[in-house]
């Protein structure tokens, strides 16, 4: 089957194009849409890797909740076109090449690492998809404490947002 390979390259390309668009777009809402594109293509990649549950959660929480919050906030505060500011000379001449070099080196290292040689193919190929049941068992047994901690974290976040949004008396 050649479909996984095609799908991988198409989605990888879409993700990179989306990430570049996040940087280049002047309107915040265009950046948000580009980021949604990245998230959707990552969801497809998760499906390719056999992580169905994570793909669904990625769409449900990231694209369906977090980004909608972003878009709504952009609409509410009417964030216009971004201002352009001069950044420092050092950043311009040293930062970019250095950053690019770092990226290249990371990619090189990852590409030649032992783990990178493993083969990843999702359901349909020889590898089985991760079972959601197994993941949930793991979450509620081994990771029970972190799981409960995240619920408290969410509670605190909700309270924090409420406190921030409250009108001053």
């Amino acid at each position: 089957m050649i479909f996984p390979a095609i799908l991988f390259f198409v989605c990888a390309l879409l993700a990179i194009v989306g990430a570049v668009m996040v940087i280049l777009a002047r309107e915040p809402i265009h950046s948000a849409l580009a980021l949604i594109l990245v998230m959707m293509s990552l969801a497809v990649l998760y499906l390719l890797l056999g992580a169905e549950f994570i793909a669904a959660v990625q769409i449900l929480v990231y694209a369906g909740a977090i980004m909608i919050l972003f878009v709504t906030v952009i609409m509410v505060i009417n964030a216009g076109v971004e201002e352009r500011t001069d950044f420092s000379k050092i950043a311009k001449f040293a930062g970019l090449p250095l950053g690019f070099f770092l990226l290249l080196e990371t990619a090189h290292w990852l590409y030649h690492s032992a783990i990178g040689a493993a083969i990843a193919n999702g359901p349909g190929a020889h590898a089985e998809a991760f079972s959601t049941r197994e993941l949930s068992t793991e979450l509620f047994r081994r990771y029970l404490l972190p799981f409960e901690a995240t619920s408290i974290l969410i509670l605190i976040a909700v309270l924090g947002a409420l406190v921030l949004a409250r009108k001053d008396e």
């Binding site: 849409l33 949604i36 669904a56 769409i59 449900l60 369906g64 909608i68 878009v71 609409m75 959601t132």
Partner: peptide
């Protein structure tokens, strides 16, 4: 026939807000 069909359905329908929000904006 998706093994977590209901979750996927919710995922897709949760994106429906974009159509409305972006149209308005």
């Amino acid at each position: 026939d998706v093994s977590i069909g209901l979750l996927f359905l919710f995922a897709i329908t949760s994106l429906g807000v974009y159509g409305v929000a972006l149209a308005g904006w």
